[in-house]
C-alpha cells in the first residue's frame, strides 16, 4: 500500500494504469472481480505549533491522476463547535490522502466532539481529542482510513499543540509536521526553519564542533510567512499541489481562517 502515496509515476512511456486483458486462468467467460476502494487525491498539509497559537494549513487542490477535480476543496476543518458553522470551535483537523476517507474521519471526530461538548458543557481538550482520534483510526486497522491526519489546538497551559497521525492511529505531539503529497519536500524545510536543524553559530568552535543555533519560539507572523514559503516551494515542485492555500490560526480568541492564492498551473 505504500505505493499508493508514491510520488513518481512509472516513467517508461505512455501506458494504461492496467493491462487491457487481465492475466487470469479463470474459467471461460469469467470477468475480473476486484474493486480498489482507495485512491490518492493529492494535496499537502502542514501544521506548526507556536508559543500561544497553532497553525494548520493545506492547499485546496483536489486531484485524481493528472486531472484537477477541484481548485477549491478545503483540507483543514474546524471541529467541535456547537453549531454547523463552527463559530465557537476550539480545535482544527487537517486530512490529506484519500479525500472521502479524510472527510468521513473528520465528520466522525466532529460528531464525537459535539456530543462531548453537549454532555459535559465544555469543549474537548486537544489531548483528549488526540487520544480519541487515535482510537478511531485504530478501530479501522484492517480497513484503514487512508489519510494523514493532523490535529491542532491549544493545550491546558494555552500553548500551541500539534498532533500528527499515521493512517492506523499511531500518533505523537510535535512542534511541526507536514503531510500528504509534498510532505517529503516540506518537512526538511521545516526541520531547518522551525527547529533550526543544521544551523550553527559561526566561529563558535573548532571544525564541526560548532554550537547549535539557539531555538526560540517563532512569532505568529513569522510562522505565517514560513507556511506560505513552504507551499510556494511545494507548488513549484509537485504537480498535485496548488490553487489555494488555506490556513487556520488557532488562538485563545478563537480560530481565524485565511485563504491565499497559490499558482494554478
Amino acid at each position: 500500500m505504500a505505493a499508493m502515496f508514491s510520488q513518481n509515476p512509472v516513467m517508461n512511456g505512455p501506458n494504461y494504469s492496467f493491462s487491457d486483458s487481465p492475466q487470469t486462468n479463470a474459467p471461460e467467460g469469467a470477468r475480473e472481480h476486484r474493486f480498489d476502494p482507495y485512491t490518492d487525491n493529492g494535496g499537502s498539509t502542514l501544521a506548526i505549533a507556536g508559543a500561544d497559537f497553532a497553525i494548520l494549513a493545506g492547499d485546496t487542490r483536489l486531484t485524481s491522476g493528472y486531472s484537477i477535480n477541484s481548485r477549491h476543496h478545503p483540507k483543514v476543518f474546524k471541529i467541535g463547535g456547537t453549531t454547523a458553522d463552527q463559530h465557537d470551535a476550539t480545535l482544527a483537523i487537517s486530512v490529506v490522502g484519500f479525500a472521502a476517507d479524510g472527510e468521513a474521519l473528520k465528520e466522525r471526530l466532529d460528531a464525537i466532539c459535539k456530543m462531548y461538548r453537549y454532555r459535559h458543557g465544555k469543549p474537548m481538550s486537544v489531548k483528549a481529542c488526540a487520544q480519541r482520534l487515535s482510537t478511531i483510526l485504530y478501530q479501522k486497522r484492517f480497513f484503514p482510513y487512508y489519510s494523514h491526519a493532523i490535529l491542532g489546538g491549544l493545550d491546558e497551559e494555552g500553548k500551541g499543540a500539534v498532533y500528527s497521525y499515521d493512517p492506523v492511529g499511531s500518533y505523537e505531539r510535535e512542534q511541526c509536521r507536514a503531510g500528504g503529497a509534498a510532505a517529503s519536500l516540506i518537512m526538511p524545510f521545516l526541520d531547518n526553519q522551525v527547529n533550526f536543524k543544521n544551523q550553527y553559530v559561526p566561529g563558535s568552535g573548532e571544525g564541526h564542533a560548532l554550537q547549535e543555533r539557539e531555538r526560540n519560539p517563532l512569532s505568529r507572523n513569522e510562522v505565517e510567512v514560513l507556511v506560505k514559503d513552504a507551499f510556494d516551494g511545494a507548488v513549484e515542485r509537485h504537480i498535485e499541489v496548488g490553487d489555494g492555500l488555506q490556513m487556520m490560526i488557532i488562538t485563545q480568541d478563537g480560530i481565524e481562517e485565511v485563504l491565499l492564492p497559490l499558482k494554478k498551473d
Partner: peptide, 24 residues
C-alpha cells in the same frame, strides 16, 4: 488517468503489478 468507466476503481498495474486472477 484513464477515462473509460471500465478503468475506474481498478488497481493500477504500474503500482500493483499485473493483476493475479487465480482466485477466480
Amino acid at each position: 488517468m484513464d477515462h473509460r468507466p471500465q478503468a475506474w476503481g481498478r488497481p493500477r498495474d504500474d503500482v500493483y503489478g499485473a493483476y493475479d486472477g487465480s482466485y477466480l
